[in-house]
């Protein structure tokens, strides 16, 4: 922001951002079985980047995001929509019929990969992207 950022805040933000982003992804992945999911994960991620924005400035937060949040919104919507048509194309089932695959991932072992999870990833990206679009736009207008 315009005023001099505090050293404690900036140091904390530097450490907290990766933790919060990791945590948000953790929340997203476990959301199907325990509290969490795309909405909550996306919001946690967004608060991490917002904290970063306040500690530094909007361009730093934009750089930390790596992807234009607007692109993220669009991509999220596409992913969410496509997750609904997987069943349509593969098995000729109605829109949004859930699909499940057992996938073997090294270290983690058997994992459940599913179209609802892909959908939730889309939700995560839309939530994160939308909140960041709003926050960044407002912060940039401020500067």
């Amino acid at each position: 922001m315009t005023s001099m950022p505090s050293l404690i805040l900036s140091t904390a933000a530097r450490v907290l951002l990766p933790l919060l982003v990791l945590f948000s992804i953790f929340l997203l992945l476990r959301g199907h079985d325990l509290p969490g999911g795309g909405f909550i994960g996306g919001l946690v991620g967004a608060s991490g980047y917002t904290l970063y924005l306040f500690a530094f400035d909007s361009s730093a937060a934009r750089a930390a995001l790596r992807m234009d949040p607007r692109t993220m919104v669009g991509l999220g919507l596409v992913i969410a929509t496509l997750s609904g048509v997987i069943g349509t194309f593969v098995r000729g089932e109605p829109f949004f019929t859930s699909q499940w695959w057992e996938v073997y991932v090294p270290i983690f072992g058997e994992m459940k990969l599913s179209s609802p999870l892909i959908f939730d990833l889309g939700v995560y990206m839309v939530v994160l992207g939308s909140v960041m679009t709003i926050v960044l736009t407002l912060a940039e207008a401020e500067e």
Binding site: G31, H32, D33, L34, P35, G36, G37, G38, F39, V73, G74, G76, L77, A80, T81, G84, F95, F96, S98, P116, L117, F119, D120, G122, V123, V126, V127, G129, S130
Partner: peptide
């Protein structure tokens, strides 16, 4: 899924959720 709220959001009523994220976007 064992979190029923999340299963409703992303599976049973995914179409609703899709509409809602469109609104958010």
């Amino acid at each position: 899924g064992r979190n029923i709220v999340n299963v409703i959001l992303v599976d049973f009523r995914a179409l609703d959720t899709l509409g809602e994220i469109f609104v958010l976007a």
